[in-house]
Design a protein around this nucleic acid. Structure first.
Length: 424
RNA sequence: GACCCCAUCGUCUAGCCUGGUCAGGACACAAGCUUUUCAAGCUUGCAGCACGGGUUCAAAUCCCGUUGGGGUCGCCA
């Protein structure tokens, strides 16, 4: 059993394309078959190296490795040979330099693995161009020749190809090739119910990567569109999904892409991720932001990551929430400044700073106990001090527990930020 | 327009093939708990078989139609 994913490098790897690739890949794994990647770059004008690189890169990033890789641009002679054969047999004719296949009137029956029998009448199908005037093959022709020669047993592709299928089946027959099994996947639509487009959200896998989604999150979310790992099961890894995979279980209805749910699925995977791996994923982003240099304290970084791990939907969130640990000057939102730092708390802050300064161990327990002392000595409610202190330390009115935050920041920075809070 | 595909909560889905379980779960939303805040987590709630005909003792499930949505009609892929 052998399947393939055949993207065209005229654009980045589309999120819908990624789902098609994923289903093919899972199918191959579940059947112990092979998965090949075929680059359909027959359109010399629009195919770009940069897109090819991005597609390969995104596939690898998602964890969808392939057993074989082909480029159609390197196989033009193969297509021409087969076109010549059809010409010799009188099944095709020439129009200028172009080779065109005659479509005899007939009824074509397609048995789709997902949809069952679909019947077409070839009266509505025009004669098909096989080789264009410039000598390059058309999509359908190259696709059929390759699928046959590469011994693809199952063609699993998007529903938008249904009406191509009868045309291609005629080509298979003309060439005397065995027709593979077909399965047409439901499409993924944008939040507005229309085509997934840049207008309704990101479309390229690399865009989602930039937004801070992790591969296991994207893959898990994508497989939920048109398929289910099992009753009451949603968060699964690829391996588990492959065990349960069956083409029969793919449904026929187009699915609407939900950013909300993607974020939730992504968050589940971040939560479940080993601290070590999460840290590894975060490091490049931190370096890019200049939050860390090449020589950073890994142990310390891991403890920062661990404090935020349970609250992240994306990697990007970490950069937003934890920035105060990495920068020297805090940017406090005007709104928070107004709300928490307008009333002069200098006396309270200095008192707290002094108490903290005296601490031998700067653990969350120790800072909390100092804090409680200050609050009870002053006879104020702890929340009267908690919020202003958090803003002073982190520049934000929300965040993880205050005492964990202090401990993470360290004595020096904590005291310094408290002392400086009302100087301006 | 022609041809083709599709139809379960707002969204993703289980159930459909092999009619008979209060139509189950998840996201989102709402409320509560927890709490130094916000998240997270936990609990509860809201909400659906598009419509109309059949077939049947019995239909989300099988059949037909209507409506609605989507796809394709390139010497693009």
């Amino acid at each position: 059993m052998k399947v393939r994913f055949a993207p065209s490098p005229t654009g980045y790897l589309h999120i819908g394309g990624a789902r098609t690739a994923l289903f093919n890949w899972m199918y191959a794994k579940s059947q112990e078959g092979s998965f090949l990647l075929r680059i359909e770059d027959t359109d010399l004008e629009r195919s770009k190296k940069e897109f090819l690189d991005e597609i390969l890169e995104s596939m690898k990033w998602l964890g969808l490795d392939w057993d074989e890789l082909f480029l159609q641009s390197e196989r033009f002679d193969v297509y021409r040979q087969h076109a010549t054969k059809l010409l010799d047999e009188g099944k095709a004719y020439k129009d200028g330099e172009a080779v065109i296949l005659k479509i005899p009137p007939q009824q074509i029956k397609l048995y789709d693995l997902i949809r069952g029998e679909i019947v077409f009448d070839s009266e509505t199908i025009k004669d098909q161009v096989l080789i264009k005037s410039d000598g390059s093959p058309t999509y359908s022709f190259a696709c059929v020749v390759d699928d046959a020669l590469m011994e693809i047993t199952h063609v699993v592709r998007g529903e938008d190809h249904i009406s191509n299928t009868p045309k291609q089946m005629i080509i298979y027959e003309a060439l005397g090739f065995k027709i593979p099994k077909f399965a047409h996947l439901p499409l993924i639509m944008g939040e507005d119910g229309g085509r997934l487009s840049k207008r309704t959200g990101a479309v390229a896998v690399s865009d989602y990567r930039k937004m801070g989604f992790v591969p296991e999150g994207i893959v898990n979310y994508l497989m939920l569109l048109g398929w289910s790992p099992g009753p009451n099961q949603e968060i699964v890894n690829l391996e588990k999904a492959c065990q349960n995979f069956s083409i029969k279980k793919i449904n026929k209805t187009a699915a609407i892409f939900s950013m909300d749910k993607l974020r939730w699925v992504n968050a589940q995977h971040i939560k479940a991720m080993a601290l070590d791996r999460l840290t590894d994923l975060l490091i490049p982003l931190l370096k890019e932001k200049k939050y860390v240099t090449d020589t950073f304290d890994r142990k310390r970084l891991e403890s920062i990551v661990s404090l935020f791990k349970g609250r992240l939907s994306t990697l990007e969130d970490f950069l937003d929430w934890a920035d105060f640990v990495f920068v020297d000057t805090l940017s406090v939102r005007e709104e928070d400044k107004q709300k928490y730092l307008t009333q002069d708390r200098k006396k309270e802050f200095m008192m707290l700073a002094q108490k903290l300064e005296a601490l031998k161990e700067f653990t969350p327990q120790a800072t909390e106990s100092s804090f409680r002392d200050v609050v009870s000595e002053l006879g104020i409610a702890s929340s009267d001090l908690v919020h202003p202190v958090r803003v002073a330390l982190t520049g934000k009115s929300v965040g993880p527990g205050l005492f964990e935050t202090m401990s993470l920041l360290g004595k020096e920075k904590t005291v310094e930020r408290l002392e400086k809070a009302f100087i301006l």
